[in-house]
Design a protein around this nucleic acid. Structure first.
Lengths: 211, 211
DNA sequence: GTCGAATCTTGCAGCCCCTGCAAACTTTTA
DNA sequence: TAAAAGTTTGCAGGGGCTGCAAGATTCGAC
């Protein structure tokens, strides 16, 4: 039964918590996917997850929060990861490396995320919340970029880098959601290449040339 | 009394509408600035604007919408403006030119916007909505960039350009809100220069060198 | 195992957001 | 001046979300 140090034997209680949480997320996504955000009530979601409506709000502050999956799981922050990349690596590459664990995490939950992104697409009012989810990370990124470059955190450059990186990730995810053949990591890489080239248009018929 | 073709003599009715609309926006911003978003009710806002609560919802779909100022005023769309820029101009410069009217519009309403941005800063849940406001424009931008470059609108490049441009505008605005000495147009220009240079860090002590 | 502490679930009351509807009321048009 | 068109308002009502206090469950120590 031994667990390695990192996960530290959850215990029955936490296991049940995670279980209900996942059930609520799944029920919310399924129902909203079927009927649309505004035609699903919290009561119906909690009914489907077999808990009381009041319990729903013990897990999520908002109906929408359940669709987005609530707060991100913890672990070493973007900030720490970015500063852990060797100093020689150019900024954009370092940023890409620092984001990689998050991206892999998303791919690990591929099915949930594809459903989630489909739900977001058909319920545009949710899109801003996807942005909000990335924003806490963006604040960290600002600080980390500032620290790495020695530029003041309250100047334009670090903030622009952080929001741009967030935009690149989000755009890649939306693209991934409609074209699940390609790896998400590949898409993000391509986005960063475009960013690094100053948003100059890629050569046309790109695939034909490289293959 | 003659008006030129563009504004076409509003008439008493539309004048009153604009008046109540502005009163609602002003009341909402003032109250929320004083007490915070969650400590102001729609009833209080409409009270302050001297209309019934029901009327509030004739103007805005949401309490937050009043804070953001509702849908953007009309005029030639970003799409049309971008395609109107001569074909020789590089993409980023063309985009910057196309956004200029919007930026000037914001500077024309400087006081309201500075208050609005302050309110957004102290009520983070509003920030995603600022993003949402730009998003309709982003869809247009995607189409326009695609048309201008001949790249399919559903590929990564145009989408990335559009979201990045939006991020640059938003970041510049937030920066502007805390440092109102600098022109907003200048800040956006600087942001676009950084984007064009592939997000390479600007030379340190930039001001000392150029002056 | 047993008991108490800590935690989780649930029901209830209640405020507020937001909507549809239909009845005033006001401006515009004929 | 009368009809048409558009606006404001009250009312009723569903649904989101919160604080509170009472069960029910799990955990830790003995």
């Amino acid at each position: 039964m031994g667990n390695t140090a990192t996960d530290a034997a959850p215990g029955r209680r936490d296991r049940k918590k995670r279980q209900t949480r996942d059930a609520l997320v799944a029920a919310a996504l399924r129902l909203v996917d079927e009927r649309g955000r505004d035609h699903v009530t919290v009561e119906e979601i909690s009914e489907a997850a077999d808990v009381s409506p009041r319990t729903f709000f013990n897990y999520f502050a908002t109906k929408d929060d359940a669709l987005l999956g609530g707060p991100l799981p913890d672990g070493p922050s973007i900030h720490d990861r970015l500063l852990a990349v060797p100093a020689g690596v150019p900024l954009l590459n370092a940023l890409f490396e620092a984001m990689q664990p998050d991206i892999e995490q998303i791919q690990a939950e591929r099915d949930v995320w594809l459903l989630r992104l489909r739900v977001i697409k058909s319920n545009p009012s949710l899109l801003p919340l996807l942005v909000a989810r990335g924003e806490c990370a963006e604040e960290e990124t600002v600080a980390a970029v500032a620290a790495r470059t020695g530029i003041a955190p309250d100047s334009l450059f670090p903030q622009l880098v952080a929001t741009t990186a967030g935009a690149a990730l989000r755009t890649s995810m939306m693209r991934w959601a409609t074209d699940d053949n390609r790896d998400l990591l590949d898409l993000v890489r391509e986005a960063f290449v475009i960013l690094g080239s100053g948003l100059t248009e890629p050569a046309p018929t790109h695939e034909e040339v490289t293959r």
